Computed example of a mutant assay.
Amino acid sequence: MEIRAQHRVHGGTLTYAQHQSAATGTPMRLSVFTPPGEGPFPYLIWLSGLTCTEDNFTTKAGAYGAAAQHRVAIVAPDTSPRGECVADDPAYDLGQGAGFYIDATQAPWTPHFKMESYITRDLITTVEAAFPLAPKRSIFGHSMGGHGALTLAMKYPELFKSVSAFAPISSPTRCSWGEKAFTAYLDPNRDTWRAHDAALLIEVGRANSFDDILVDQGTGDQFLENQLRPELLEQAAAKAGQKLTLRRQEGYDHSYFFMASFVADHVAFHAARLA
């Protein structure tokens, strides 16, 4: 683990770091906040959205005061592999900055775009060895990262105590962002996409290890109707008998101003389940 910078914040320590990932075959960057006092600490993994790096949540979400209060750490990785040898696309919603937290099976993405394996294997192993973190963790995220948090929690329930999301891509098989990414990264057979769709996973009971799923969605979000479609989560949860707390926040948009307004609620939600 290479330490790139450290800052004091809310009595704890914020570390920017970089490490080599076996899954992506590239260096991966991340930030880690540890609260004041002695560890090891339970921790949250935050997954950011399209175009983001490890820095967006770190500087904009304002989560560390609540994390210090609840004595939980927060790990925020980058959203994709990066570098001159890593495949990319001129569009903002494909390639570097748009890893979609899945393992690509199609060229030219296959060699490096292994974000599912990175998050669930390399990241967890590395941060728990390098920082005072306990093997007790939860996951949350925004937009593309909300999709990642929901799907990874349901596919790997043994890894995560709880899950929440801000404005997640609720059903990527039924929106243009998801269809574009899955067509590029995965088998053209749409049946293989179902394993990466939060609403479809909830519908078949894959979320039944979680007592509740917290989702916040702004009603003023410009992507609400065409890309995010939280009503599909509601329908799936009703069908499966899964508790879902979907809070529609009046007037809030898709920006980090929205997340900063409610992130303390999410930290508290997870802290209660990590206790």
Rank of each mutant, 00 (worst) to 15 (best):
E231Y: 09
H142V: 12
Q235L: 07
Q217C: 13
L214V: 07
N208D: 10
P168Q: 10
M154V: 01
L152C: 04
R206W: 00
T192E: 01
P132W: 03
A195I: 02
L150M: 14
M144L: 07
L123H: 01
T126A: 11
A130C: 15
V127A: 08
S170N: 08
P188C: 11
V163E: 07
V163P: 07
G205P: 04
S209I: 00
S171Y: 00
H147Y: 08
R206H: 13
F210V: 11
S171K: 02
G146I: 03
T120S: 09
D211V: 12
L232R: 15
L228M: 13
H196F: 15
G146L: 01
E128P: 07
G141N: 04
S176A: 11
T183H: 08
G218M: 02
K180W: 07
A153K: 02
Y156T: 00
V204N: 02
K180T: 12
D187V: 05
H142C: 10
E128A: 12
N226W: 00
W193G: 06
A238R: 09
D212G: 11
E203Q: 14
M144R: 03
F210R: 05
P230R: 09
D211T: 13
F160W: 08
F210P: 05
L133F: 11
F131V: 12
T173A: 03
E179G: 10
T125V: 12
R121G: 15
S176P: 00
V163L: 10
H142Q: 15
L232N: 07
A237T: 06
Y185F: 14
L201W: 00
K161E: 15
D122M: 03
P188V: 04
H196K: 03
H196V: 02
F131Q: 13
P172M: 01
K180V: 04
A195C: 01
A184S: 14
T173D: 06
L152D: 10
G205F: 03
Y185Q: 11
A167R: 06
I169M: 13
H196E: 11
N226S: 13
T173C: 05
D211G: 14
T219G: 10
V163S: 10
L232K: 11
A149I: 00
M144K: 06
K180E: 00
L200Q: 15
L201V: 01
H142G: 05
T151F: 00
A207H: 02
L233P: 06
F160G: 08
G148I: 01
P188M: 08
R121T: 15
T151W: 00
S164C: 12
I202R: 05
S162N: 11
A181I: 11
A181L: 06
D197Y: 03
F166R: 10
Y185G: 10
H147A: 12
H142T: 12
R121S: 14
D211N: 14
A195H: 04
V163G: 08
S164Q: 11
S209K: 13
D197Q: 05
V204M: 09
F140L: 14
G178E: 12
A236C: 08
T120R: 00
R174K: 14
M144F: 00
L152S: 09
W193V: 03
R190T: 08
